[in-house]
Simulated scan of single mutants.
Amino acid sequence: MIKAVYTGTFDPVTNGHLDIIERASKMYDVLYVTIFINPHKTCLFTVEERMEMLREATKQFPNVVIDESSSLAVEYAREVGAQVLVRGLRATEDYNYESLMCFTNQYLDDGIETVFLMTRLAYTFVSSSFVKEIVSHKHSVEGLVPACVEKKLIEKYRG
């Protein structure tokens, strides 16, 4: 059984994230989609809210497990018995950052592989930060996030 871990802040989950989740869920027996808690990052949504949105958005993928952690990715992967870290890439800026992260993870545990998946072209510009900015200016993000996420964003920004 091959287990993989896909980590992120997911504040909030976007259709770009879901593209990676859907494709990775077909590649591995179990895919842990794990919210990594970064104490240096200020998030719009609580961990519980992000977990709820991820559960709703991924309910059609039976082999996806939603979790949260404050460990390093390789430590978490070891904890759950995963052999692979899945990382999504949109553009060269992502590659530069993610390759350094990959080399760091190899240093920490060279037995855990990192697999990069390019997002589909339609999502190359989508980021959680851009989505929040768009909604904060009262514009629709339909097609960029799942409907359940758009609803939560509107509630946060418009009361």
Rank of each mutant, 00 (worst) to 15 (best):
I66R: 12
L72T: 15
A57S: 15
M53K: 00
N15M: 14
D11M: 11
V47F: 01
I2A: 06
K41N: 01
V126S: 00
K3V: 10
T34N: 04
Y95R: 03
V126K: 02
V74L: 06
L31C: 01
V80D: 05
T14D: 10
F103R: 13
A4L: 00
V80M: 04
V86K: 03
T114S: 14
I66C: 04
A82S: 13
Q60I: 14
E93F: 08
T42H: 13
N105W: 04
A122K: 12
D109P: 04
E98M: 03
D109G: 05
V5K: 09
I112T: 05
T124K: 11
S69L: 00
T14G: 09
N105E: 08
F61D: 00
T14V: 08
L31H: 04
E98N: 03
H17R: 12
N38I: 10
T114C: 09
L117S: 02
K3I: 05
E68T: 11
L108T: 00
Y97S: 09
Q106D: 10
K59C: 01
V115E: 05
R50P: 01
I66M: 08
V33E: 06
E79N: 06
V86S: 09
N63P: 02
I37G: 08
R90N: 12
L121A: 14
D11Y: 07
T104L: 11
Q83C: 09
F36Q: 09
V5A: 04
G88D: 13
I112Q: 09
V30T: 15
S99D: 02
L18D: 13
L85E: 08
E52T: 11
V86Q: 08
Q83L: 05
V5L: 06
G81I: 07
K41D: 03
C43A: 06
Q83A: 12
L121V: 12
Y76V: 06
V33K: 03
N15F: 07
R78V: 15
Q106E: 12
T92W: 06
E48K: 11
T104R: 11
T119W: 03
E48R: 06
T9W: 10
R55W: 00
F116T: 07
Y97W: 11
V84Q: 00
I112K: 12
F61M: 07
L117M: 14
K59Q: 10
L31P: 04
Q83F: 03
V65H: 00
L85V: 15
I21H: 05
F116Y: 07
E52A: 10
E68L: 02
K3R: 15
D67T: 05
N38G: 07
V80L: 00
T104S: 15
E48P: 07
I20N: 03
V13M: 04
Q60N: 13
A77S: 11
H40I: 10
I2Q: 14
T34P: 00
C43P: 01
V5R: 02
E93V: 14
Y97G: 02
D94H: 10
N15L: 12
L89R: 10
V74G: 02
G88A: 09
T92I: 14
E113K: 09
R87A: 05
N105C: 11
V33S: 03
P62D: 07
E113W: 06
M51D: 05
T46V: 07
A91N: 15
A122S: 12
R87V: 07
I35S: 02
A24E: 00
E68V: 10
T119G: 13
L54K: 04
D67C: 02
T124L: 08
